[in-house]
Nucleic acid binder design. Structure first.
Length: 111
DNA sequence: GCAGTGACGTCTT
DNA sequence: GAAGACGCCACTG
């Protein structure tokens, strides 16, 4: 039990949880912040486990293209886009408009 | 224990 | 400039 493999997962949850409303981030940014090189997949995998957490705004986490790649993993995919738009994020189809403007980098917290 | 897959990203052709 | 392939680590079958 002292292992706590969820440690990495928890770190991802913490960062995602820190995402301000109306902002979005990418898997690579989180991975980079956690020091996970090319760990984007690991971040994505952690997000998949985020379903065990309720305070994880996974809808604010998108891929590098600003595309809601994981919307399909939501109970209601349209909710993801809906929530993003409700927070001021324009989403067309499955892609965020003006993505870089809504892009939020976890590194900006300590920098 | 091995092989396949995955909510991605970067490199190479 | 675009498309394809590879790499990373973890989980499931």
């Amino acid at each position: 039990m002292t292992k706590n493999k969820e440690n990495h997962f928890d770190l991802v949850y913490q960062v995602v949880r820190l995402i301000p409303e109306g902002k979005v981030t990418s898997y690579g940014a989180i991975a980079n912040y956690l020091g996970l090189k090319s760990g984007a997949r690991m971040v994505g995998y952690a997000m998949n486990a985020s379903h065990t957490q309720e305070d994880i705004p996974a809808h604010r986490v998108v891929n590098r293209n600003g595309v809601l790649t994981g919307k399909h993993h939501f109970s209601h995919p349209e909710e993801m886009q809906k929530k993003l738009e409700a927070e001021g994020v324009k989403v067309e189809g499955d892609q965020i408009q003006n993505f870089q403007a809504h892009f939020w980098d976890p590194n900006s917290l300590e920098l």
